[in-house]
Simulated scan of single mutants.
Amino acid sequence: MMLPIISAEERLKERHSAKVGLVGFPGVGKTTQLRTLPPKSTLFVDLEAGDLSVKDWPGDTVRPRTWPEFRDLVVFLAGPMPTASADQAFSKAHYDHVCATYGDPAQLDKYDTYFVDSLTVLSRLCLAWCKTQPQALSEKTGKPDNRGAYGLLGQEMITALTHLQHVRDKHVIYVAILEEKTDDFNRRYYQLQLEGSKTALELPGVLDEVVTLAVLKADDGSTYRGFVTGADNSYGYPSKDRSGRLDPIEEPHLGRLIAKCLGQTPTANHNTEHTN
């Protein structure tokens, strides 16, 4: 057996994709960014049941209501995890079981993008499930143990999101609410609004891009929406650009931002007039 080396020529021919964290304050227009993506090739994973701003968007939607349903969806979208044992989530056995329920995974071939809205709600679903597991109970007293529940929450969230992020030929967009905090010295900072701290701390490290959709102020005092993409931005917003192709402030159009990350020319100009 030879070492499975991928040549430079083969790698350059591969279809590349972007894994993006889209964060922002409530009402700034995060969900509305769905309108900038091609509806025929985008799957909307609606966890919030708050799709009023995109109610007439003509694309496909799935609505997992529990953490086990989301795990089933992830393994269906991403395939089995090579390192998972047969009794673990995302294993080959799990994948086969889900395929028997959902049907032929070839039905996913038409999608280029998975738009997951939002991680904030997903973390609540996950925590609710974690609190019902044995790890959330004290071995000595049998009473609820929040440390165990939150420890399991971090493991479950990172494992699921990282596995979905490993789908090489699909763009994956994770939407999350941004919240403002102050530290012990009354200094302001921003973080993702998620249950527990592990996911908020680790997820940006595995994504290609983290952009904050924010209302910014122009030199003349007027306001406008923009994507903050630079890690060293003066606002203190969480941002990251692994592609190296983005300007510090980009227009609030997710479709064109993804194309720019990949060095491509946008093929369509989808609507972004509404806000959520």
Rank of each mutant, 00 (worst) to 15 (best):
M1K: 01
P4D: 02
I6F: 11
I6M: 09
A8G: 13
E10T: 11
E10K: 01
E14C: 14
H16A: 05
A18P: 10
G21H: 02
L22C: 09
L22W: 03
L22A: 09
V23I: 06
F25P: 11
G27K: 06
K30A: 03
T31D: 13
L34Y: 12
L34V: 15
T36S: 09
L37K: 14
P38L: 03
L43N: 01
L43K: 03
D46Q: 01
D46G: 03
L47M: 06
G50L: 13
L52V: 07
K55H: 08
D56P: 05
D56C: 07
D56K: 09
W57P: 08
R63T: 15
R63C: 14
P64D: 12
R65H: 13
E69Q: 13
R71Y: 05
V74W: 00
V75I: 13
V75M: 06
A78F: 03
A78P: 04
A78Q: 09
M81Q: 12
T83D: 11
A84I: 00
A89T: 11
F90M: 06
S91W: 02
S91T: 05
A93R: 12
G103V: 05
D104M: 15
P105K: 14
A106H: 14
D109R: 15
Y111T: 04
F115Y: 09
F115Q: 07
T120P: 14
V121Y: 15
V121D: 14
S123Q: 10
R124W: 15
W129S: 13
C130S: 13
Q133R: 15
Q133F: 11
A136H: 02
K140E: 10
K143A: 12
K143E: 12
P144I: 03
N146G: 09
R147F: 14
R147N: 10
A149F: 04
G151C: 06
L152Y: 03
L153D: 00
Q155L: 11
Q155P: 00
E156P: 00
E156L: 05
M157L: 14
M157F: 05
I158A: 08
T162F: 07
V167P: 00
R168D: 04
K170V: 08
K170M: 07
I173T: 01
A176T: 01
I177F: 08
K181N: 02
D183K: 10
D184Y: 10
D184N: 14
D184S: 08
F185L: 12
F185I: 07
Y190W: 00
L192R: 00
Q193C: 03
Q193F: 03
E195A: 05
S197E: 10
T199Y: 04
A200T: 02
L201H: 14
V206I: 03
V206E: 12
L207W: 02
V211M: 02
T212F: 09
A214M: 04
V215A: 06
V215W: 06
D219Q: 08
D219Y: 04
S222W: 03
T223K: 01
T223E: 02
R225F: 00
V228F: 06
G230N: 06
G236I: 01
D241M: 07
R242K: 14
G244N: 10
G244E: 01
G244T: 05
D247I: 11
P248T: 06
P248M: 04
P248S: 08
P252A: 09
P252E: 05
H253V: 13
L257A: 08
K260R: 13
C261T: 12
N269T: 14
H270G: 04
H270N: 10
